[in-house]
Nucleic acid binder design. Structure first.
Lengths: 127, 127
DNA sequence: ACAACAAGTTAGTTTTAGCTAACTTTACTG
DNA sequence: CAGTAAAGTTAGCTAAAACTAACTTGTTGT
């Protein structure tokens, strides 16, 4: 099972990969807001656990498992971040950061039901 | 500023103190779900930071600062936990645990606006 | 082609928060 | 009132996740 920090990095890698080009360590470091050595260590850990592929001094890519995890994370963070920002009125930076924190750290049951609630709420408001 | 773990312990102490009697280390340990030595260390840290009073081998009590912090935490956790459990349908144990996690870790802005949203929602449903 | 700069890595340290094992103090009970 | 059990403490270890400093590799511009 992924730790909270691993999820943060995985989320960042996925987001960067959506921009098309290669994903590089330095960009992950910048996106997560940590130093390059911290990123290197975490890439080792994510690679050991089978979520990413990375050769020495090379680029980063997600494994199928990594993609699956990241998509789920991304979906949940988007819905929650959107809700926090657009419905609750939180400024976007806090909303995004806190969505990742919440999605990465609470129980699966809670995040599923919370996301379910948000979607139901949205539907009932815009029928 | 309190760390996430410090808040968990502070919350537990406050909850125990509501039951009337003295607050003892062993009960805090059980409530938080950690070992007694971990609790001893954290009590030292909370005491150093001015949130609790504790003499050697003695009982635990909150300072005025500690009470203030704990009341705020407790209020927010109650509202959020209630929402997760009664509105979103999360089982109570997860709801309580995750409410503490969320309240202790997200930005002040987010928790304030989220709690505000929940209260507004409640009011509009039961006018 | 190669110098210089950017990116990536390694090594070693720090902080936070947990644990077990072993010990001391307090409290209770016969 | 002594001995035991429970509570509290100390010491020492571990793991996760961050950092800086120093080094290596890769890329790029002239």
């Amino acid at each position: 099972m992924l730790t909270y920090s691993q999820k943060k990095y995985l989320f960042a890698i996925y987001k960067l990969s959506l921009n098309g080009g290669e994903v590089r360590s330095a960009d992950v470091a910048a996106s997560v807001g940590v130093s390059k050595p911290s990123t290197v260590k975490m890439m080792q850990s994510l690679s050991d656990d089978g979520y990413i592929l990375k050769e020495h001094y090379g680029k980063i890519s997600l494994t199928p498992t990594g993609v699956k995890e990241a998509e789920e994370l991304f979906k949940r963070c988007s819905i929650l971040g959107d809700f926090l920002s657009n419905t609750a009125g939180v400024n976007e930076e806090n909303a995004d950061t806190d969505a990742v924190t919440i999605v990465s750290q609470v129980s699966d049951e809670t995040i599923e039901k919370l996301v379910g609630y948000i979607q139901a709420e949205k539907t009932s408001l815009n029928p």
